[in-house]
């Protein structure tokens, strides 16, 4: 074997001209994700501007229970003879406001508690974990019912107060669920070597929690909150149907469904229209939750 002169000097390492795997494969969103985002965007816009549109909410006896397209009313009339389309537009505000607020509160609080209970391995963290387990053992809708009836003992409260009660109740119900998800994810990430590396660098516990672990846990939290919002919209409707939700004079999808039940046989379009809007919103949220999870899934070994 002709040995090549291997007089390799220990020269200072020269940069190796090796590019990382070309192009950080940007994942593209499919048409479905865009449709869902479009629908949700529309709902949010309607929620914000709906009350300012000055829509006609007057009752008209003739319109009561009329089918869609009756006399220019696209969705017909509701049980009280109001334009159903206008009612659904106005109802969007309460439904979106209540569900988003509840889950935002739930995610922030639950996420924070979940992070703490997953990362710090002390007694407080252990106790917190047990509390979540106990709360989770309680059927969520029963818990929500109990909370609403405890908080809303004063029947004379304003519609806004009632909204707050529903928001807080749904938030409390969502906290242990979101905390549990966050905790499970935190446990997985807290044992990675980069966390040990950060400890070895002398990073403080909080810095590790928020800089190293949180960014890895957020996608799962977000995906789950999307589902949470969907569940909260349905839960708000369920509470309304059980007559403990928002005040009957606050238009919400739940209230429309609740009152529409009485006319289900004669004019099913009332319940059906509200359910369709609710269904599309929930579907969009669920789908987006999945998309978020897939989108942020870092491929650890890119081919």
């Amino acid at each position: 074997m002709t040995a090549p002169s291997s007089d390799s000097q220990p020269a200072a390492a020269t940069p190796v001209p090796e590019a990382p795997h070309a192009a950080g494969t940007k994942k593209r969103l499919g048409i479905g994700a865009w449709l869902c985002m479009g629908w949700l965007g529309l709902m949010i816009v309607i929620a914000v501007i709906g009350p300012w549109l000055g829509l006609d909410t007057s009752s008209n006896f003739e319109l009561k229970g009329q089918p869609p397209f009756w006399n220019g009313h696209i969705l017909g009339g509701d049980g009280l003879g109001r334009d159903l389309f206008n009612q659904i537009i106005l109802a969007t505000r309460a439904s979106i406001f209540v569900s988003f607020s509840a889950i935002i509160i739930g995610t922030v609080v639950g996420g924070f508690l979940g992070l703490i209970s997953g990362y710090f391995r002390n007694r407080f963290a252990g106790a917190l974990g047990s509390v979540f387990d106990i709360l989770l053992a309680y059927p969520p809708i029963v818990l929500a019912l109990t909370l609403v009836s405890v908080f809303a003992s004063d029947p004379s409260g304003s519609g806004f107060q009632r909204e707050m009660v529903v928001i807080i109740s749904l938030a409390i119900v969502s906290v242990p669920i979101l905390a549990r998800i966050t905790r499970a994810n935190t446990l997985v990430w807290a044992d990675r070597e980069f966390v040990h590396a950060a400890e070895a660098m002398g990073a403080s516990k909080w810095r590790i929690l928020f800089r190293e672990i949180l960014p890895n846990v957020v996608p799962a939290m977000l995906a789950f909150s999307m589902l949470g919002i969907a569940v909260a919209i349905v839960a708000e409707a369920a509470l309304s149907v059980l007559a403990v939700g928002l005040k009957a004079d606050t238009p919400s999808w739940g209230n429309i469904i609740s009152t529409g039940r009485d006319d289900l046989a004669s004019s099913p379009n009332i319940v059906f229209s509200a359910v369709a809007v609710l269904f599309l919103t929930v579907l969009s949220l669920n789908y987006l939750g999945d998309v978020i999870r897939a989108h942020f899934d870092v491929k650890e070994a890119a081919l």
């Binding site: 990675r192 070597e193 980069f194 040990h196 590396a197 950060a198 070895a200 660098m201 002398g202 990073a203 403080s204 810095r207 800089r211 190293e212 960014p215 890895n216 870092v298 650890e300 070994a301």
Partner: peptide, 27 residues
């Protein structure tokens, strides 16, 4: 300081390389 066995697991997948290397300086 410590260098670990699994080169991929010892770097935070969500952070940019420059941030990872700068982290001890920032701490």
């Amino acid at each position: 300081q410590m260098i670990f066995q699994d080169p991929i697991s010892s770097l935070n997948p969500r952070r940019k390389v420059a941030d990872i290397v700068a982290e001890p300086l920032r701490i």
